[in-house]
């Protein structure tokens, strides 16, 4: 009995050494750290609003955003192409989770700045996190003369604090597949000064943004912001649809939007265009990145 067992054992001991098909299996499972999902959006903006993407650590992103006039301007305004609003911005990735940026817009001559931090990051492998959660805090200051700012109104004292507005936003998103990403953006815009006593200083809003990839280098994006406020005759909700085209170091975003301004206060609370009336801007964002510092580079051995 013992002999038979021993012989059997012999047979089995010999087997694995001959039958080894994959040598690498001998190493067992690889221990890799968490692999975070990448390329959920082509760039750090969906269209006007922030996407769940950050500028990578050490990368400077120069952004030129441009909105022509309303298509409803007709032939006389060359369908909006005679006018343009521009925002020039510089964003920088302090780490892979934290980015900051500043911008200057022609719209109400506004300077804005923001910080975006990723609290949770969706993982492909190595951790079970199904979503990305980011927070964006931004503020803006108009530098236009008081008489040119619609919400100043006549006879109002021009305090510095009146010129400031803030926005806080939470971005809750997931890359569902290679081709589809969606995010929800609940937030609040605080305006130190508003036009009418009946308008609130704090506006709760919720945005939704999504992108679908058409090809490897072309995606279609859309975003919509619903502002929770009593109907104000002038203002509408922001809706934008556009394409992302990627060519090497650039991303071109071409889109149609009813918002004129390109910072939170402007596009969330001061959108005046109505899609149904043809109040649509054709616009584009161009992003060009520069690697200022490479955190991964190790000294040569």
């Amino acid at each position: 009995m013992m002999i038979r067992t021993a012989l059997l054992a012999t047979a089995f001991l010999a087997l694995p050494t001959f039958g080894q098909d994959n040598l690498l299996d001998l190493l067992g499972e690889e221990e890799t750290g968490p692999v975070y999902t990448t390329a959920s959006f082509k760039t750090t903006r969906v269209i006007n609003s922030h996407s769940l993407e950050n500028t990578a650590h050490g990368v400077l992103d120069f952004r030129i955003s441009h909105r022509f006039g309303f298509l409803s301007g007709g032939v006389n305004e060359f369908f909006g192409l005679d006018n343009a609003d521009v925002r020039l911005g510089l964003d920088y990735g302090i780490s892979d989770r934290l980015m900051i940026g500043v911008g200057r817009s022609g719209f109400e001559k506004t300077v804005d700045g923001f910080a975006k931090f990723k609290l949770l990051r969706q993982c492909d492998d190595g951790c079970g996190m199904p979503i990305t959660l980011a927070v964006v805090a931004s503020s803006s200051m108009t530098t236009a003369p008081a008489k040119d700012v619609p919400w100043y109104g006549p006879g109002r004292q021009d305090y510095f604090s009146h010129r400031l507005s803030y926005s806080w936003q939470m971005i809750l998103g997931r890359k569902f597949s290679e081709g589809f990403t969606m995010q929800l953006m609940p937030g609040v815009v605080h305006r130190n000064l508003v036009e009418l006593a009946s308008d609130r200083n704090d506006l709760l809003n919720i945005g939704v943004g999504a992108r679908a990839k058409l090809t490897k280098r072309l995606a279609i994006n859309a975003e919509y912001f619903h502002v929770l406020r009593d109907p104000v005759p002038l203002y509408t909700n922001s809706l934008s649809v556009g394409f992302d085209i990627e060519t090497g170091g650039h991303v071109f975003q071409l889109h149609f939007t009813n918002s004129t301004g390109m910072f939170e206060r402007a596009f969330i609370s001061e959108t005046t265009g109505r899609w149904e009336d043809g109040d649509i801007h054709f616009g584009f964002n161009i992003s060009r990145v520069f690697t200022l510092h490479n955190p991964k580079k190790k000294p040569v051995e």
Binding site: N22, E30, A39, A56, K216, G248, V289, T291, K297
Partner: peptide, 26 residues
């Protein structure tokens, strides 16, 4: 004499983050 290699594509590190993203994605 058998030899095997495996390299995780995402573990290739580039000087530019965007290049790395495009390498992986496109």
């Amino acid at each position: 004499g058998a030899i095997e290699f495996a390299a995780l594509v995402k573990a290739f590190e580039f000087e530019k983050a965007l290049m790395q993203e495009h390498f992986n994605e496109n």
